[in-house]
Nucleic acid binder design. Structure first.
Lengths: 190, 190
DNA sequence: AGATTAAACTAACAAACGTTAGTTTTGTAT
DNA sequence: ATACAAAACTAACGTTTGTTAGTTTAATCT
């Protein structure tokens, strides 16, 4: 457990506030107050408000991308792939709880190359998942319904987990993973 | 198809912009430009930016509440209730597409009594749904998994529909309703 | 003790914010 | 044509915004 740099502390606090109120509604003075300092002091560590948003979103998005690519290319059954994607999503969400808020709701405020970069990662992630589902339907392991609806159904639940998990930390990780996987697999299984 | 008042046009445009960028990131000048007028002119029709948000969110929330109460009290089977809730959610979402963005992401910017009022409606809606699910588990019609996870899974999908529906309007309403209901019932059914 | 460095500070900026007051334009009904 | 109402306008207000420049404090190392 290494001690975080001041920059990391700032980003962490920002993530928390962005989650509560959204990126645009959080001012640099709000963020400074949360840390017990003055707004101008933040700029000794970060170069802009946008930089904070960018580092929050892009690092998590890359984590998703790397994980998904690995699963997509691995030699396991379709249903096992779906299961792994679910586990990946849960793990990344739990690890980056607050940042998930920005990733889901404030990605459109990314600037410059960061925006198309993020969108490309997001599209590819969805496309990989779509391919897995379509393959499952052809194979007969996944229900023969509109693949778009199956994809949307599973992805919605996964993407909203960040809102629920904090409230329900009475549930332990093991049960959460098992029950979520069971529920979501049941929804798409043939 | 009665012609909308200017106020209604303003609120509708606002809903669209709030959906795209979030409430806090949309300025009154943005909104005015969208309507081809100057910002000050908006105040001939509305009294504040907050009033727009409030009328957007509260009216839809009440629609959800009324619908849910009706279903909750009706004399039908548990699974039929779940099915009706799903249909309610789809209908309200399709009818108020843009407003759903604010309801989901900007409710925390409500002011005064509107905030606790909204929160109470939201909690009661969830509580009613929770009761339906718990009853189903006791009866044996719904899978014996953690009811919180079942609730969260279904509700997440329903609440995110507003993001998906606009992109997939190739799918007709009939298929959408049928496939969504099938998918979500499959995820919780015993 | 003196030097160095990290991290805070004060003060201020130009731009953008929501909103107000008062005035002019536009369309409709007399 | 005149009167009336609806809806636009210009101009400006006090605040808040993200950010900069320059300075002071606090802790660490030689």
């Amino acid at each position: 457990m290494k001690t975080p740099t001041r920059k990391e502390e700032i980003i962490k606090s920002a993530a928390k506030l962005f989650l509560e109120r959204g990126y645009s509604a959080v001012t640099m003075r709000d963020l400074a107050k949360e840390l017990g300092i003055k707004a101008a002091s933040l700029y000794n560590h970060i170069s802009s408000k946008h930089e904070i948003l960018e580092s929050l979103i892009i690092s998590v998005a890359e984590e998703f991308t790397v994980g998904m690519n690995q699963i997509f290319l691995s030699e396991i059954s379709t249903l096992e792939k779906v299961e792994q994607v679910i586990h990946l999503h849960i793990d990344v969400t739990v690890k980056n709880q607050d940042a998930l808020g920005s990733l889901n709701n404030d990605w459109m405020h990314l600037e410059g190359k960061a925006l198309p970069y993020f969108e490309q990662m997001r599209n590819q992630y969805e496309e990989n998942f779509r391919q897995i589902i379509k393959t499952g339907i052809v194979e007969g392991s996944i229900a023969a319904r509109d693949p778009e609806i199956l994809l949307f159904s599973v992805l919605s639940t996964l993407r909203t987990l960040y809102l629920w998990y904090p409230k329900k930390n009475s549930i332990d990780m093991q049960t959460l993973k098992a029950d979520m996987t069971a529920t979501m697999l049941a929804s798409i299984r043939a």
